[in-house]
Nucleic acid binder design. Structure first.
Lengths: 207, 207
DNA sequence: TTTATTTTCGACCAGTTGGTTAAACTTAAT
DNA sequence: ATTAAGTTTAACCAACTGGTCGAAAATAAA
């Protein structure tokens, strides 16, 4: 019973990596199997040999990318820090990831809009539910303790920190055109923004 | 010199409307000329007769949609209200537009990433520059007057209000999956969020 | 070595896609 | 009614696209 040819594992990885780059850059509809094969330096038939179809290959890519991003995010909320500290750590980690994988926000947003179902079976719902409820309860508790303003809704905190963190990367072309700057100036602004974000949120939710 | 057949203006409009719906829903790469023709109830060759190519038709659509959105936004900043009032009005108007045209954020973000150049020649740069500089100056002035915190950067205010306003609509599938709700519950949350957004920002920038 | 299994590839295919063409139809001015 | 211009259509096409197939290498088992 032989299973492993050194080649196979390698090509499978090579394909996935090339596919990731192309899919993330051009989206599902814009990507071409031939282009992925070229980037991987392999025959197009090989992509189908290993991943059956474009759709399956795409799911493999999306799943990997999405899960990596989510795991990082969710783990921040699993600690038992104060809400303020959670927010600080969240921004710090999230910004770091986003600076490295700049194209992920638009990619994920767009593909999720194209087919919201790709995400099904990709969420560990029980883990998610647990994280959500404990984080929301912690917010409620700190409201009672007079740390957080009464009028603040847990949901809003969540949506707002996500928005402030991810949107600018998705909207890079818009923002740069809008304020008339070039790419590097944009990332300078993002860099400078980074540290102020947590304060921005905390300032508006603290009692 | 004949120029206007009643039909022509009508079909041109019909095509643009159908094209808008399809392009916004599926993006440039996902849209099919045949599908647009079907939706318009016309022959595919007509699309080419009026708009020459898929690309030109797309630009006509994007330009119209983008300009309508931008005009609304920019005009808010052109008034000479206080910064706080400007923020309040901005959210109020922007949210209204976004609730009506829910698919615009992802569409614009994605197409702009696909080809950042489509937006060139679509900005009235002088108007934009004027708006930007007067708004930023107003912020600086209110900082001097002790209304706004010294540490706040004008750029950040701009990026933050845009993020808070637009991101949730772009991330609808993500958010609904994340917190396990359905579509109508999502728009309930958006509705409830609307009024608190301005306060959220003002609270964190006020001195 | 021989045999069986997995991996790689060139060539090919059927369906789709954006785009074209030539002819027919409308409209309204002469 | 004739003409001329714009409008609409069906049929068509070349290029592309995801996917398949059979054969050839490569690898490991016998």
């Amino acid at each position: 019973m032989v299973k492993t040819n050194k080649q196979s594992e390698n090509t499978e990885e090579t394909i996935l990596k090339a596919a990731s780059e192309i899919f993330i850059e051009k989206g599902f509809n814009g990507a071409r199997m031939q282009e992925i094969a070229d980037k991987a330096g392999l025959n197009k038939a090989l992509l189908h040999y290993y991943y059956r179809s474009k759709d399956k290959l795409f799911r493999a890519v999306f799943s990997k990318v999405f899960q990596r991003l989510m795991d990082g995010l969710i783990s921040v909320f699993e600690g038992n820090m104060s809400v303020f500290d959670t927010i600080r750590i969240f921004f710090k980690e999230h910004q770091e990831v986003l600076i490295t994988y700049r194209h992920l926000p638009v990619f994920i947003l767009n593909e999720l809009q194209r087919d919201p179902n790709i995400v099904v079976d990709m969420f560990d719902t029980s883990r998610l539910e647990k994280v959500r409820s404990t984080f929301f309860q912690r917010i409620e508790k700190e409201k009672q303790e007079g740390i957080i303003r009464q009028s603040i809704q847990p949901m809003d905190i969540f949506v707002n920190i996500l928005s402030l963190s991810a949107f600018p990367y998705a909207a890079k072309p818009l923002i740069t055109s809008f304020i008339g700057i070039n790419k590097s100036a944009f990332y300078d602004i993002m860099e400078a923004r980074k540290d102020g974000l947590a304060d921005f949120v905390i300032q508006s939710i603290k009692a």
